[in-house]
């Protein structure tokens, strides 16, 4: 079985750990596949510019370095841990209005795509490179916080443009997404150690990038709640999954579980 986390931020945007530190952290805990997905904000929007000036986003300038480091670290991760590292980006369109904000994960990217483009255009460009377009945390348990709701608002129209929709935000399950009939994925949105124990996705597939991406596309996957001291997951039923404790109850919770989609 492969356990994977496909939404991870490094120091290239607002993450706390460098890419080598992330590789070692996940590799030493037995993960089989991860995707590092730093923010890539809009270049022309005010909030995107602010993020760039503050060093909280990838830019056109840092993207080539990011890609090169991901490439070399993927080789190291495979040699040291037999772990796959998938290059990714979180296309970040932030607005002061939540319903105009959207975050799109692009997994398996090889070329730069501007975040200034229309969301459908971004999703199609990701897929044109053979990658996966994933709707990142389309909802949030905290309605008062800044959250990207645009994709969820347009979910019916965008259904065919995305390969999966995140059902989790850090330790929290997004019940409405879980209950929907949209294709799903669970990731941590890792920014630092406090997000390490959280929901992840598991696969029974060949340990190659292509197989993992294909498993997400075909929804041949399970979900698990990962605790730092554990690496194995066990299937649970959908009922158990939906009855799963919410964030505040997770603090003292230890078993590692998964449910079949």
């Amino acid at each position: 079985m492969i356990i994977g986390d496909f939404h991870i931020h490094s120091t290239f945007s607002d993450g706390k750990l460098t890419i080598p530190e992330i590789i070692d952290l996940y590799g030493q805990h037995g993960f089989g596949a991860i995707a590092i997905t730093d923010h890539l904000c809009e270049e022309k929007a005010f909030l995107g510019k602010a993020a760039a000036y503050l060093g909280k986003t990838l830019t056109r300038a840092t993207f080539p370095l990011y890609q090169e480091i991901l490439k070399s670290e993927a080789e190291r991760a495979w040699k040291m841990y037999r772990m796959l590292v998938i290059p990714g980006v979180e296309f970040t369109q932030n607005s002061i209005v939540n319903h105009r904000s959207s975050h799109i994960l692009g997994l398996g990217l090889s070329e730069y795509i501007s975040a200034d483009r229309d969301i459908v255009d971004i999703a199609r460009s990701i897929r044109a490179q053979g990658g996966l377009a994933i709707a990142a945390h389309p909802l949030s348990p905290n309605r008062m916080a800044a959250n990207p709701y645009l994709l969820w608002d347009r979910r019916e129209e965008l259904r065919s443009e995305f390969d999966a929709w995140e059902i989790t935000l850090h330790q929290t399950l997004l019940d409405d997404v879980v209950k929907s009939d949209l294709p799903k994925i669970a990731s941590s949105d890792f920014h630092g150690m406090r997000h390490f124990h959280s929901w992840k996705t598991t696969f029974d597939c060949e340990r190659t990038v292509e197989s993992v991406l294909e498993s997400i596309r075909l929804q041949k996957l399970d979900f698990t709640y990962f605790k730092e001291e554990q690496t194995l997951a066990h299937p649970i039923t959908e009922e158990q999954f939906l009855a799963y404790p919410k964030t505040e109850e997770l603090i003292n919770w230890t078993p590692s579980l998964a449910f079949a989609v």
């Binding site: 120091t11 460098t18 080598p20 300038a61 080539p64 370095l65 090169e68 480091i69």
Partner: peptide, 19 residues
């Protein structure tokens, strides 16, 4: 990799920091 930047020295520092 640094050939596209005018400040290859500064970007060396940036890259090393990210490593």
């Amino acid at each position: 990799t640094l050939g596209i930047y005018l400040a290859e020295d500064y970007m060396t520092g940036v890259a090393m920091k990210h490593l």
